[in-house]
Design a protein around this nucleic acid. Structure first.
Length: 410
DNA sequence: ATCTCTGTTTCG
DNA sequence: CGAAACAGAGA
């Protein structure tokens, strides 16, 4: 068992680093596809689309959108992680928010903080403890596993809500707080143990190896979503911490996804808005979106065929990381899946974690966070501005009906 | 064939 | 009015 556990851990450990890589990679693909179906109506999990995103940089679109034409303001959270953050006065940059482990973000009610995986550390710990217990049959009261620092971190960031169910596992007599994460881990682990004591194949492993555990498979549909979530959640640095030694990031050949790379680079990363007038050199892509980048995780469209395995394995850079995560998510996902956005909603707002099916939707949504109102009423006397073009139009129609017809129409 | 954008509609 | 979902069109 211990071995198994250990292996699991390792597996998860590797991924952590991935996250950052994506930015490093050149970015090109951004996105991708998303079926445009309405999730609500059809809950079909998008089937994996065979084709991958091409490096679409929505070049054409940029030009027409008024959106782009506006000088974006501050790069909002934009500053990519590297750059800086500081964008919004009132709100901490997305990056910041996410980075902070403690405290739950103000906004995300729904997704809240996505479920995080139990940290590897925890797993290890558990494993270790278990092992010890097994050997000694639980004799030594000496606390075998005390929460490792990393562990704690993870715990903190984990949304209790997700794992709330987590009970303290009796088996582990740890006096730990009910931190969710651990709980999760413990529960999972304990579960594994309980149910399949000898069973080696935990969920984690499969993913890493490329085999998905059956259970995992079942949850596929949900995964995408989680992925996004996890992205948001995962703090790069945290991940790293956990597995410093982890080799990680390896894009395995097995991942057929040459195209998978979408993850490698954040979609918004540079392309779309890059051409923006604002022209802030690389740092400011364009406007509101920039922060996504900053967040890095933000909205990477989930690949059509995103497979947990692939992601984990090949994902060069997915922040989230890895197989381990995946697995964890799976567990959680089962219960919370329904609540989460549909698989199609791959574009996740870094700020509030809300998911959208289209990049444009996310963009618009970002306005709500930034307060940006790029659409101004064309009427001379009216200086109203709107964050959503449609709303502006509506306003014109309603308020300036007679006049607007001319102006807007033309 | 696929993806994104725009516009309309709907909800809070 | 703000924001999101839905539906259609264009690239």
């Amino acid at each position: 068992m211990t071995m198994q556990l250990a292996s699991m851990v390792h597996g998860s450990g590797r991924e952590p680093e991935v996250y950052d890589h994506r930015r490093l990679h050149h970015h090109q693909h951004q996105t991708q596809q998303h079926p445009q179906h309405h999730p609500q109506q059809h809950h079909l999990p998008q089937q994996q689309h065979p084709s991958h995103p091409q490096h679409h940089q929505r070049s054409h679109s940029q030009s027409h959108s008024h959106y782009y034409s506006q000088p974006p303001q501050p790069r909002a959270y934009g500053a990519p992680a590297a750059a800086a953050q500081g964008p919004y006065p009132s709100r901490p940059s997305a990056a910041e928010q996410y980075q902070r482990p403690p405290q739950s973000p103000p906004s995300p009610p729904v997704e809240e903080q996505k479920p995080l995986l139990p940290s590897i550390s925890s797993l290890l710990t558990i494993a270790g403890s278990e092992r010890a217990q097994a050997e000694r049959a639980t004799q030594s009261p000496t606390s075998q596993r005390h929460p490792s620092p990393t562990l704690k971190q993870e715990q903190q960031r984990v949304p209790a809500s997700s794992f709330s169910h987590r009970p303290s596992s009796p088996q582990h007599s740890d006096g730990r707080p009910d931190h969710v994460p651990r709980a999760f881990g413990s529960s999972a682990v304990s579960n594994a143990r309980m149910t399949l004591p000898p069973t080696p194949p935990m969920h984690a492993e499969p993913a890493a190896d490329g085999n998905q555990s059956p259970s995992a498979a079942s949850t596929h549909s949900a995964t995408p979503y989680f992925l996004g979530q996890s992205l948001n959640n995962m703090e790069p640095h945290q991940q790293r911490q956990h597995h410093p030694s982890a080799p990680v990031v390896k894009r395995h050949p097995d991942a057929p996804q040459s195209s998978m790379s979408p993850y490698t680079t954040s979609p918004y990363g540079h392309s779309p808005y890059a051409s923006s007038p604002g022209g802030a050199s690389g740092a400011s892509y364009y406007s509101p979106e920039p922060h996504y980048n900053a967040g890095m995780y933000a909205q990477r469209p989930l690949p059509p065929n995103f497979d947990p395995q692939t992601m984990a394995v090949s994902a060069p850079g997915p922040p989230p990381s890895g197989p381990g995560l995946w697995q964890h998510h799976h567990y959680i996902s089962a219960s919370s899946q329904s609540a989460f956005p549909q698989p199609q909603e791959r574009y996740v707002c870094p700020t509030c974690a809300k998911a959208f099916s289209r990049p444009s939707s996310l963009r618009i949504h970002s306005h709500s966070h930034t307060g940006e109102k790029p659409y101004k009423c064309t009427q001379p006397g009216c200086g109203k501005a709107f964050s959503v073009r449609s709303n502006m139009k509506r306003h014109e129609r309603g308020c300036h009906a007679s006049a607007s017809t001319n102006t807007t129409a033309s």
